[in-house]
Simulated assay, not measured.
Amino acid sequence: MQGTVDGFSYGLVTPLVAYLMACLGGALGLRCTTRAMLVSNSWRPGWLALGSAAIGSGIWTMHFVAMMGFTVAGAPIHYDKPTTFASLGVAIVMVGVGIFIVGYRGARGTALFTGGTITGLGVASMHYLGMAGMRLNGALEYNTFTVAASVVIAMVAATAALWAAGQVRGLMWSVGASLVMGLAVSGMHYTGMAALSVHLHNGSGPTGGDSAAELLAPMLVGPLAFLLIAGVVVMFDPLMVMGKPEWSTLENKPGVPAHETVSHSGRRPALRPRRGTGHRGSRTPQNR
């Protein structure tokens, strides 16, 4: 028997809140990616790992906020905990691989394509693994073409977001990138849900697991506190807000020697010998 599926049982509330969560996670994660490109290699892995965790958590939270509004008439929905938490791990790891590629190789060419593709596949993998953890008295079936379209949406939008993050510009530029990232996650999710049909089994069967509310409610506290702390860090870190290192402003100040600035790669350029010192035959104070 074909089940009646409703993905908007709370109207626009769950889609809007889900999109907001995806944007918040994307804003933090992409900003950390931009920040990583402005520091030395010793600090870069930490910023990239923080960005990966933020985006992965935002994707996961977005998915299950959206699933709060998903119902099937006559079939209570529950979730298997191990599979659900595995989907969170997959999201963080795969997004992390993509972000590390862009963070170290740059947001252009092959590195951008590879990083964006892996990040988009991470979004899709999280979604469909999360759906595999859903338990109800029925079978899930997907339209292959629509599933493929959802994966393409995720890869294209994720690539665009990583490209924007790699431009190393101001805060508003990263806000725009986070909106694109939120669009990638939400667009992929609802396109994937459009590919879904449910065939109910006759009678009532076991549907062990936790409901969406029981599973998600305890998990919301952590991500929201995490985003709050990250927001404070962004507000008080000039590199995060301005999108450019503090030393870039020194280059234009009179009286600041060029050898006191730092290159965009995080390394100090080679010192230029000053006239009158350090050269054979030059006059030094000692030779006067």
Rank of each mutant, 00 (worst) to 15 (best):
T14Y: 06
L16T: 11
L16F: 12
V17E: 04
A18T: 04
C23I: 10
G26I: 09
A36E: 03
L38N: 04
S40C: 13
W43A: 15
A49S: 14
A54F: 07
G58C: 10
M67R: 02
M68Q: 07
T71A: 09
H78Y: 01
D80Y: 05
P82M: 10
V95F: 02
G98F: 04
I101W: 02
G106D: 12
A107M: 13
G116H: 04
G120C: 05
V123W: 02
M126G: 03
M126Q: 06
M131K: 01
R135I: 03
L136T: 02
A139P: 00
Y142R: 08
T146F: 07
A154V: 03
A154G: 03
A157G: 09
L162I: 08
L162A: 08
L162Y: 10
G166K: 06
S174T: 08
L179D: 04
M181S: 05
M188H: 02
T191M: 10
T191L: 10
L196F: 03
L196Q: 07
G209W: 03
M219E: 14
L228M: 15
M235E: 11
L239I: 08
M242T: 08
E251W: 03
G255P: 00
T261W: 02
S263C: 10
G266C: 12
L271K: 09
R272A: 12
R275H: 11
H279D: 08
S282Q: 07
T284N: 06
